[in-house]
Computed example of a mutant assay.
Amino acid sequence: MTTTDTIAALALAVAVVAAVAAIGSWKAARNANGAAQTLSRIEEQRLHADLTPHFRCTVVANESRSTAMLRVHLEGPPGLLSHGSIEITASLRNDNPHRGDGPHLAGTPTPEEVRAHIWGPWKFSADGRDDTGRTVAPQQLAVGEWTRYGLTPSTPPSWSADTADDWRRDYANAPLRLSITARSKGSAWTVPLEVSVTTEGTA
């Protein structure tokens, strides 16, 4: 092997080593960037979970249980204080999340109709409610403040053989199943709640 060949071989070896080192550096940088992104996502998720709103709710019905009042108090967490007022939307959940999941038989209500009906003791009567009384319009609420919503008894679906009295008896001791969605600064939380109903004079 001539001196020129030796020099060329050494140059090639140096180039290969440099290329391997460059690839290694690129992989290390990519892995470091991926790890940083993963840590950032974990931190964002932790902060989001730490800011999940805490609600304290009460429902008080009049003696005849012809009306009731839902009171929603935003208790925290303290981290939400920096957000000022947050937007909350209250809606009612059915007594069973699987309502409407069964097979649809001819002559029976569709799964959508079943799910759309309010299967529970109360519906919203407050201003801004939707047509069914399941959901009310969003409100702004700050930590430490409260709002309230009027309620009236729900009714059996049109296809049911139950009377209104049967329906009320079935749900006499049922809680109000709520879902409160809170939004602030691009973040959103959905908080499920079950609230026992008390009667005026016993609350």
Rank of each mutant, 00 (worst) to 15 (best):
V20P: 06
T52F: 09
G120W: 13
D165A: 08
A29S: 08
I180Y: 03
K123I: 13
D101F: 06
R169N: 15
G79A: 14
N94C: 05
N31I: 07
D127L: 12
P78C: 03
A22I: 10
A61M: 00
S25Y: 15
Q45I: 05
L193C: 00
R56F: 03
R65P: 02
W189T: 09
A182R: 06
S187P: 08
R46M: 11
I86E: 08
I23N: 13
L51H: 03
E113H: 05
Q139R: 09
V17G: 14
P157T: 05
H104G: 02
G107R: 12
W119I: 05
T202I: 14
I86H: 08
S82Q: 08
I7L: 06
A126Y: 09
R30Q: 03
P111T: 02
T199A: 10
A61T: 03
V191A: 07
Q140P: 04
A90P: 15
P109V: 04
D101G: 07
T52S: 12
D95V: 11
V197F: 07
S187V: 15
V197P: 06
I86K: 07
E112F: 04
D127E: 15
A28P: 12
E44H: 11
S184D: 05
V14C: 05
T199M: 12
D95W: 12
M69R: 08
R99M: 14
D162K: 07
I180F: 08
H73R: 11
A32V: 00
P78V: 08
A142W: 15
A142T: 14
T190N: 13
G102I: 07
Q37P: 00
N33R: 04
E43A: 14
Q140K: 10
L70C: 06
T132W: 11
T199L: 07
G34C: 01
H48A: 14
P121C: 01
A61N: 03
V114P: 02
R148V: 12
A126W: 07
F124C: 09
P192E: 08
A116G: 10
L176Y: 07
T152W: 10
N33M: 03
N96C: 15
T147P: 00
N173W: 14
C57L: 12
P121M: 02
R71W: 08
S125C: 15
A174C: 14
R56N: 01
I42D: 13
T6S: 10
G34E: 05
L92W: 14
R41E: 12
R115V: 03
G84K: 00
R46L: 12
R30D: 00
P156M: 03
W146E: 15
T110D: 09
H117M: 01
E112S: 00
T110V: 05
M1T: 10
D5T: 04
E200N: 12
A11N: 10
L141R: 02
L47G: 07
A18T: 08
R41G: 00
V72R: 00
T38K: 02
F55H: 03
E75G: 02
L105M: 11
Y149P: 08
T202E: 14
